[in-house]
């Protein structure tokens, strides 16, 4: 085994519970650097909670998370986060460029304001997601797919090594879906590690090279050809998989 190689993300024995109701039971997950990993599982499987636990947004009842051998608090600057699109108020009085610039806030730290350099970075990120024509658009006037691309641009601005994305394909149009896939593959080609909560089983094999099957406990994780098997899927989803072969 290549035990010496550092893991991009290393989750050990992670349990998260709300009161006495477990949301994640004793999860182990090793994500090697440079993979594109999908987390799949039924509703309520704890996919979002797992991402939030990695980011320190929920407190685990047990277990540990390391990012390149250090706790998240020491690695904030190398982790980019794309929350679920529905988690924010899109009527907030601000425009596209301003939201994308928020990706720089971590690097700026407390009190310092974004300036021209940050706005230029935001512009570059918007170009990468094909949204450069919308910089001054009020965010409530964007379509769902455009909102998602703005969120991705905001994460790109963070210039992270590890990306965690919660349902970036949720409710987006076909054009945006292709744009996101291209972007994810570009990130991987640049040596980034990308973890994506995903709900469309049909596209897992096309889009991703690693997969984690999750249903409160970890069913399996590893390279797609090895792990994405009908046995594992049945175990993850129970009997609700009529459409799979």
């Amino acid at each position: 085994m290549e035990a010496s190689e550092p893991k991009a993300i290393e989750v050990t024995d992670l349990t998260v519970a709300y009161q006495d109701k477990p949301v994640l039971w004793d999860i182990d997950l090793d994500v090697p650097p440079g993979v594109l990993l999908a987390i799949v599982g039924p509703n309520g499987a704890g996919k979002t909670t797992l991402i939030k636990a990695v980011l320190g947004l929920v407190r685990p009842a047990a277990g540990n998370v390391l990012i390149y051998d250090k706790p998240y608090e020491a690695q904030r600057r190398i982790v980019g986060y794309v929350p679920q699109r529905g988690s924010v108020d899109w009527d907030f009085p601000t425009n596209v460029l301003d939201v994308v610039t928020m990706g720089c806030y971590g690097a700026l730290g407390w009190i310092r304001r974004p300036g021209r350099k940050e706005r230029e970075l935001a512009m570059q990120a918007l170009e990468q997601v094909g949204m450069e024509a919308y910089t001054t658009r009020q965010i409530s006037q964007l379509s769902g797919g455009q909102q998602q691309r703005v969120f991705l641009a905001r994460a790109l601005v963070q210039d992270a090594t590890v990306y965690l994305m919660d349902e970036p394909f949720q409710g987006v149009d076909a054009t945006t879906e292709r744009a996101i896939v291209t972007l994810l593959q570009k990130l991987r080609a640049d040596g980034k590690t990308v973890v994506v909560v995903h709900h469309d089983l049909q596209t897992v094999a096309d889009y991703f090279d690693w997969v984690m099957l999750l249903n409160i406990r970890r069913i399996a994780s590893g390279p797609v050809p090895e792990v994405f098997t009908s046995d594992n899927l049945r175990e993850t989803y129970g009997g609700r998989l009529g459409f799979m072969k």
């Binding site: 939030k52 907030f92 601000t94 009190i111 310092r112 974004p114």
Partner: peptide
């Protein structure tokens, strides 16, 4: 800047 971020997207504010 902090008030804007935390009001718009509290989870990103926490992550950062």
């Amino acid at each position: 800047k902090e008030l804007k971020l935390v009001t718009f997207d509290a989870s990103l504010a926490a992550a950062l």
